[in-house]
Nucleic acid binder design. Structure first.
Lengths: 227, 227
DNA sequence: AGCCAAATGTGAACCGCTTCACATACGCCG
DNA sequence: CGGCGTATGTGAAGCGGTTCACATTTGGCT
């Protein structure tokens, strides 16, 4: 909308596939609603359905045994998810919860299996969804292995801007939550953000951030070393 | 062989799917050979084929811009790989190179597309492969985010034992390479290994490791905190 | 307006890992 | 067998990020 796909760089490669998928899912799906804060499923649950978000925002996160939280992603309308545990008959790898009131399509495993045999396009679309997911997670992992905290934070802010950005440009996310996104403590996030605020790169409020100087942030997000 | 699948815990969940896949691929695949050290493809290459390893060992790794190396996996006979870039028409996310002389099956994208339309089982198997990959990478990422170096190292040693272990129990891997597997420096690996050697947990040689006390290592690999 | 719970700011001490520097040991090959 | 390249061992210094401990601010609610 605001910029062509070429410019999005490392951003979600899954977008195109998912639009097609939603159309293919509609015939076999029912609808559910979530209130803000409600969980769709928990890490470790049995998987029965594939989902597509119609409206609202969801958060995908995993919890370590020691209680540390890692926020993997934020989902917006049009996104399809839940395929991992559904198709390998395992347990949910992550918890999905609503950041705001949301509505979604659910397609059962049985319905999908049947429909896939009738319609090879669905199988192909699901395959592209799954490999796109693998690529996305793979990128996140390289990011964690190679990039310093400030770089990870800069990248995640730009990504969240794209996913959660409001009309006024603010991003509704607390610094504690941001820490979960970049695998760092709230304190470390707070100190980096305070620094960026002094530099005029971001503006900070209670529970939100606004990117003032996207270009500076983009430069930071490309630089491997520390500032 | 030596232990039932139940006990393998976090180990590769992809094994079962791949056996089925090899049979499905054979009709549409040709064979290639690699000498030790040769690369099958490089990170960033265009993708044209899906592969299945018939014999030998391969290493999957990515390189950061700053030259840091991350070893994602080691592949053995029967494993199928290369699906990510093939099915999302992107570039290879990683480099794959032969640790020893290897032979493999290659199936072209065109042949696969055609065969998938004829045979829904192939589509289903590829889908399971892709979601299995996503789950595997996801586990690796949680590992990196949550576990300390010694825990990551203990886990990786047990995994490599399973993948690379020779008849005599030794694992042919240098400490520099191990560093790449756990995202740490050679020195850090060396110090931890020296400690474990003094404790009788491992035996160390030039270019190899042997696990002396798998139970101790398994305990270490389960413990979140430092020793 | 005033209060309270939760979010943020910040410094000090600590710690694990890196970086750097060099010593040592092993194995291969002429 | 001797030498050289590469792998390993190890200490010292540095640094990024955590942990801990408070102070401060903010927004929502009564």
């Amino acid at each position: 909308m605001d910029e062509p796909p070429r410019d999005r760089g490392w951003l979600d490669v899954l977008d195109q596939v998912q639009a097609d998928l939603v159309d293919l899912l509609k015939p076999v799906a029912r609808t559910v609603s979530l209130r803000a804060g409600e969980s769709l499923f928990l890490q470790g649950d049995d998987a029965r359905e594939l989902y597509s978000l119609l409206s609202g925002r969801l958060e995908v996160c995993v919890l370590s045994e020691s209680g540390q939280n890692l926020a993997l992603n934020v989902l917006g309308p049009g996104q399809v998810f839940g395929e991992i545990a559904l198709f390998d008959r395992g347990r949910r790898t992550a918890t999905v919860a609503a950041l705001e009131a949301s509505r979604l399509l659910c397609a059962s495993a049985a319905a999908l299996d049947q429909e896939m045999r009738r319609n090879p396009d669905l199988a192909a679309a699901l395959l592209r969804l799954a490999v796109g997911r693998a690529r996305w997670i793979s990128e996140q992992m390289e990011n964690l292995a190679f990039a310093a905290l400030n770089v990870r934070l800069a990248r995640r802010l730009l990504y969240l801007q794209h996913r959660l950005g409001e009309a006024d440009g603010s991003i509704a996310v607390s610094q504690t939550a941001l820490g979960g996104h970049v695998s760092a403590t709230r304190e470390a996030v707070s100190k980096t953000m305070a620094h960026w605020k002094r530099e005029g790169i971001v503006e900070i409020g209670r529970g939100w951030v606004m990117i003032r100087d996207p270009d500076r942030l983009r430069i930071l997000s490309a630089l491997p070393p520390t500032i």
